[in-house]
């Protein structure tokens, strides 16, 4: 039996370790489990980046048919990632700073940082510059659901808030209260 990579219907190339049956089991040896967790978090982040997925929930491992099936299950070898194992992987990812619990104060759903908030801040500012949105007030909706798809399409509001807060620190954005919630105004960086 040879363990090889596999290309999923969505065009994602699964690493060969995904074809190894024990990869789906929580390892009793802590050193081995650390390797397994490291491999899983790498896999989760790259798959999220590939499909532009922002959220991962323990529920995704419980019920089939979700957008994470290609990764959390391997029908070819009849294995799936047990929800409890996924939960401990999520915990490790949060500790490592590549994910954050969303909403806070629970451990079953995370926001994935396949780009760190700092990187999102740069993407956001660059997008605002290139689309000529400097100094105008924008609603969050205009950013997350733009008429022309952008790298920020569908970005979750909590992540957007974090990115704006980072820009605000360097005076490149300002949060503004508007009639139906919050808005933001972008500034060119001070020379």
């Amino acid at each position: 039996m040879s363990l090889s990579t596999h290309t999923t219907p969505s065009g994602f190339v699964l690493p060969s370790i995904h074809a190894a049956p024990p990869f789906f089991t929580k390892q009793p040896n802590p050193a081995t489990e650390a390797i397994v967790i490291e491999q899983w978090s790498k896999l989760i982040l790259s798959y999220a980046r590939h499909r532009k997925l922002f959220m991962l929930r323990v529920d995704d491992a419980e019920t089939p048919g979700g957008e994470w099936d290609e990764v959390l299950r391997n029908e070819r070898i009849n294995r799936r990632l047990p929800p409890t194992h996924l939960e401990s992987i999520l915990t490790a990812m949060v500790v490592k700073g590549v994910a954050a619990y969303e909403p806070a104060k629970q451990t079953r759903s995370v926001l994935l940082y396949w780009r760190l908030p700092e990187e999102w801040a740069e993407v956001l500012h660059q997008w605002a510059t290139s689309t000529g949105q400097m100094n105008t007030i924008m609603t969050y909706y205009e950013i997350t659901e733009p008429a022309v798809p952008s790298p920020l399409s569908n970005i979750p509001i909590p992540l957007l808030r974090k990115a704006i807060a980072i820009l605000a620190k360097t005076n490149r954005a300002q949060v503004i209260a508007i009639a139906d919630g919050e808005g933001v105004r972008f500034f060119a960086p001070a020379k």
Binding site: S2, S16, I17, P21
Partner: peptide, 26 residues
Amino acid sequence: GLCWLDDQDEVYGRAYWVTSAMKWDV
């Protein structure tokens, strides 16, 4: 740490996988 555990084995429920004996493509 010479092998990994698989607790979803179809036949025995609990199988051990010796990683150095597995054939990895990458």
